[in-house]
Amino acid sequence: MKDIFYYFERDMLRWVRGRVSVISALVMPAAWLIFVGLALPTTFTENYIDFITPGILVLTMLGASLQGGSLLIFDKILGFLNKFLALPSSRESILFGKILFITARGLLQATVILLLALVLGASFLSPWSLVLTYAILALFGVLLSAFSTTIALYLSDHDAYAAFNAMVSMPLFFTSSALMPYSVMPAWLSALAYWNPVSYAIDAIRALQEGVLAWSRIGALLFLATVVVGISVRQFRKVTL
């Protein structure tokens, strides 16, 4: 168990010491919120900031998690993974260390967005819904960072990983409920969006604005996360090069 924290600590130290990457990680999501939240014309809602913030939060976790997979790619290319795999420490702690770091970093970015959204006039946050928002974002982060880290285990280089990232992140984002409500989507898109895991998280956070706990969406997210983490642990335990 402690090993998870040691791996987390290593990634965190490395990240914090690369100051530029810290600044960019915190500025980028803010830029998204400002440009998407303020620049897009809105016809379907009064308070677009309230509407768009959950989408941007989940988008940020999505981007952070998928980008996080490249951490393992680098560990692999540079030979760190070989050294870690030859240790008697359990191999899934490598995976959980990555999940912990990637999710924590994503939540930090999400915090920047939440603060900025408040400044820009978002009005949806009661204390308990804030806690639940973080919980949903964390669950979503665990799901996607487990997925991306395990995919990274099987890709041989950074280009392959970048291609995977592009292939997955764009469609997931644009077929989600991030940018518009189901009511204004064409029928084919709303069907697609409904089954998209990105929408599970967005819908669950939006429901919180109405004071509703969307159990079916949270349940779906929880189920998917359990399955993906389970598969990932198995892959990490048995991996050979």
Binding site: R14, G79, F80, N82, K83
Partner: peptide, 13 residues
């Protein structure tokens, strides 16, 4: 213990 061929030490640490 195993020291692989590629020099894998964290330069930021």
């Amino acid at each position: 213990s195993y020291v692989p061929q590629d020099m894998a030490v964290d330069i930021k640490l």
